[in-house]
Design a protein around this nucleic acid. Structure first.
Length: 426
RNA sequence: GUACCUGUAGCUCAGCUGGUUAGAGCGCCUGACUGUGGAUCAGGAGGUCGAGGGUUCGAAUCCCUCCAGGUACCCCA
């Protein structure tokens, strides 16, 4: 269809009932995050470009080719946020936050990445996420991961693959990167050009390479868990044990490095089992103990995750919970004539104020049509008022299911309906 | 950014190797039921066949360009 305007590439519109699904997923997330003591945080949708470049790492794909960057009217380089963490970190530092205390925050908001759109991969998507600052212990990692898993479980997503890895401490990671670079240089000819580039900028990323030859030679490369200090190894081991104790079937994948440079120690990703499409990743996160300091704050440990709302909503099986996303219409008002419409509006407002969901049509249309609407809205009751009823000073209250109806004096209609409504609620 | 597939009523799609007024189901509207919904039956509205150009007597159908969606790279949420 040739419509005059179309949504920009890679963006999606959500009309009812799809929009209700997103709200439901978001509500489940908020409730659960708050149960864990996380409080909401909101930060700008765009920031100085430097913030993201510095945080995620110049060589990461997100920064090097996926950012929506533009100059503002004074020529300053701004970027629509590609992820939530840097903005939150910046906001806390800017506010002079007391990082000696433990802080739990959650957010919900749009993220932007300029990439080739595909199912489950959009240029604007909503991300929910949590961050915990000031806690360096493994138990904080376990909390974040289990909050994530419980969130997905709460939506009926059970067949999850929970993949974890450890990148070691910040020092381990630095040492490992050098090691890896050396290894790649030594076997220079056997790596692809992309990997040569990665070796220069961020050697860890070679594990993301999909060229089979690179994988072969990488098999013999030094592994992070070989380089890691004893303390880091123990930490990772404890993490695995604790997660298993929580009943999670976790997988360890020492190739999992994640797309952002600021991670250390724990990294994890959760995807749908069997869903081998490449967009199956529902959630990803990890520990970023160096970020606050990198941004000029005090040395503060931190851990968090981000999760794509649209992807999660798409993975949910809505057939069981269809009722949750359908607005329950309690009552429809059916009127004929101006006087009846005015009376109907008054009644509607009184009933709405009492908490009922009331529908009324503002067009001039037949009883038949209006009752049809009441029916398709699944209204439990209808109030019918026409000229006859106005003259007699009554309204007809009709039970939509049984079809029974009865005359009620106008002055008593609200009370009559509310008494039944209350009963039903108990 | 690369490759392949797709784009026909509001929705899901049919339309054989180019041939006259482009179809179905669902939905919507109207009537049977002149002030009463769900079922049934009958009728109706709704399409510059994604956009632009080309080939042809003739294009939804073939060719080119663009736009959009999907899939695989890539990357991730």
């Amino acid at each position: 269809m040739a419509k005059k305007y179309a949504s920009p590439r890679g963006t999606i519109d959500f009309l009812p009932p799809e929009s209700m699904k997103l709200l439901h997923v978001e509500a489940v997330f908020r409730d659960l995050a708050e149960n864990y003591g996380y409080l909401p945080v909101r930060t700008p949708m765009f920031e100085a470009t430097e913030l993201f470049a510095h945080g995620a790492g110049e060589s990461s794909d997100i920064v090097s080719k996926e950012m929506y960057t533009f100059p503002d009217k004074k020529g300053r380089s701004m970027t629509l946020r590609p992820e939530g963490t840097p903005g939150v970190a910046r906001a806390l530092i800017q506010a002079g936050w007391n990082f000696a205390e433990q802080t739990r925050l959650y957010y919900v908001g749009s993220m932007f990445r300029y990439q080739r759109p595909q199912k489950g991969r959009y240029r604007e998507h909503t991300q929910v996420g949590v961050e915990i600052f000031g806690a360096s212990s493994v138990t904080a990692d376990v909390e974040v991961i289990s909050l994530g898993v419980n969130y997905l479980n709460a939506l009926g997503l059970e067949n999850l693959r929970i993949v974890v890895n450890s990148l070691g401490s910040v020092e381990d990671r630095t040492a490992y990167n050098e090691n890896l670079k050396k290894y790649i240089d030594q076997n220079h000819d056997e790596f692809c050009p992309d990997c040569h580039f990665r070796a220069e900028h961020n050697p860890l990323r070679v594990f993301d390479c999909k060229v089979p030859e690179c994988h072969v030679i990488l098999e013999k490369a030094p592994k992070i868990d070989e380089i890691m200090c004893e303390e880091s190894k123990v930490r990772f081991k404890i993490l695995q044990e604790m997660l298993r104790e929580e009943g999670f079937a976790i997988e360890v994948d020492n190739m999992l490095v994640r797309g952002l440079d600021y991670y250390n120690h724990t990294v994890f990703e959760i995807m749908m089992e069997g869903d081998e499409g490449q967009q199956s990743s529902l959630m990803g996160g990890g520990r970023y103990d160096g970020l606050i300091k990198l941004f000029g704050g005090p040395d503060t440990p931190a851990m968090g995750f981000g999760s794509g709302l649209e992807r999660v909503a798409e993975a949910v099986d809505w057939s069981d919970i269809a009722d949750l996303i359908k607005p329950e219409c309690d009552l429809a008002i059916v009127v004929l004539g101006d006087k009846a419409h005015a009376l109907g509006t008054t009644l509607a407002n009184l009933l709405r104020a009492a908490g009922m969901m009331v529908h009324i049509d503002h067009r001039v249309t037949s009883f038949k049509n209006q009752l049809g609407q009441a029916n398709s809205l699944n209204a439990a009751l209808a109030i019918i008022v026409g000229e006859d009823e106005i003259a007699r000073g009554v309204a007809i209250v009709k039970d939509m299911e049984s079809g029974e109806q009865e005359d009620v004096p106008v002055s008593q209609v609200v009370e009559y309906i509310l008494s039944g409504f209350e009963d039903e609620r108990e």
